[in-house]
């Protein structure tokens, strides 16, 4: 799991790349990035999932725990560019009622 962060105004777009399958490497990488952003007072964050090929339940867990830590700092996390499979998972678990899901990172940024 690799990631790259770009700023668009005061919103951070974190582009995730690879499989979002849980396990310390992926979860730590993402958590550290979010931690750094929150420390720099960037509270509105978009996870761009365009290059995420796979996601399992542990991956969902990563999204949830990050959402929770961002919200506890008064910010929000939006998801963008999910593939059909991941959309299906979000709908099945009803997590689409918790996460705001946009078709692209730009759209997500405009939603803040």
């Amino acid at each position: 799991m690799k990631l790259k962060t770009e700023m668009m105004g005061d919103v951070a777009i974190v582009k995730l790349d690879g499989k979002l399958m849980g396990g310390p490497p992926a979860s730590d990488t993402i958590r550290n990035e979010v931690y750094n952003l929150l420390n720099q007072d960037t509270k509105n964050i978009v996870f761009d999932l365009q290059n995420v090929t796979r996601m399992n339940s542990s991956g969902l867990g990563i999204l949830i725990s990050n959402l929770s830590s961002i919200k506890s700092k008064g910010g929000d996390l939006k998801l963008a560019a999910l593939n059909e499979n991941m959309k299906g998972i979000m709908v099945m678990t009803k997590l689409n009622t918790i996460f705001e899901i946009a078709t692209s990172a730009e759209e997500a940024v405009q939603g803040f």
Partner: peptide, 24 residues
């Protein structure tokens, strides 16, 4: 609670998917 849809297959061959009725 966000579980994979269970399947009810009726005797007549029609089926229904028991989709999630709430969040995980």
């Amino acid at each position: 609670a966000g579980h994979n849809p269970a399947i009810v297959l009726h005797k007549n061959g029609k089926y229904e998917l028991l989709e999630a009725t709430g969040i995980i």
